[in-house]
């Protein structure tokens, strides 16, 4: 994937400015930064939810796990998965694989799930299509450690480029090959996982 000079404004607020980076197939890229840095906006643009005001994108088809759960409360877990599997033309057996990944009962009504379980379903919907590029916005938020472990094991086994945002520096260091630091809408640093990521965020925030 190639991202060049991406910019986005919301009225007078500059959410992103001149963001440029690239990732090869199979790369794991973490995007970190303080609150309001533009991480979610960047992923929304890469996912095709928002259109950039400037810049160019070269991306393969991408699966997207939004930060906020985006599933239907009045449908069951299986019905949600089947709906999105149909819309995304997911490969055969994707629904069963995701049910196994989430460990959720297929007939449970989504509106009755806990926040953590709802997030598991949210992630599973994003992974249905087995796309070559995965965009995960705070995927492990609201997940307990065991669920996080299962999630990253599953993602690690995928043959896909993964771009994810996280507030958890340790998670970024553990699961990413490269770390991009965003601050004030700009890409301020590109680091290795072994670098001092916490210090980088603090500096970016100041």
């Amino acid at each position: 994937m190639n991202v060049a000079g991406i910019g986005k404004r919301f009225g007078a607020t500059v959410a992103l400015r001149g963001v440029t980076f690239a990732a090869a197939a199979g790369d794991r890229v973490a995007v970190i930064g303080p609150n309001g840095a533009g991480k979610t906006t960047l992923l929304a643009i890469l996912a095709g939810v928002l259109a950039p005001d400037e810049g160019t994108l070269e991306l393969p088809p991408a699966g997207w796990v939004p930060q906020r759960s985006a599933v239907y409360s009045k449908l069951t877990v299986r019905e949600n998965l089947e709906l999105f599997a149909g819309l995304e033309r997911a490969p055969h057996g994707a629904v069963e694989r995701m049910l196994e990944l989430t460990g959720l009962g297929g007939d449970e009504l989504t509106g009755t799930l806990s926040g953590g379980n709802r997030q598991r379903l949210n992630v599973a919907v994003g992974l249905l299509g087995s796309p070559p590029l995965l965009l995960l916005d705070e995927p492990s938020a609201a997940l307990d450690p065991a669920q996080r472990e299962r999630l990253w094991t599953f993602v690690g086994a995928l043959d896909a480029t993964v771009l994810f945002t996280s507030h958890d520096v340790a998670e970024a260091a553990q699961h990413a090959h490269r770390v991009l630091v965003l601050a004030g809408g700009e890409l301020v640093a590109e680091l290795a996982p072994t670098d001092d990521l916490e210090r980088a965020i603090v500096c970016a925030g100041s």
Partner: peptide, 10 residues
């Protein structure tokens, strides 16, 4: 439900 963006992104 937050599903609008998920639906219309493609």
């Amino acid at each position: 439900e937050g599903t609008y963006a998920r639906l219309v992104r493609g």
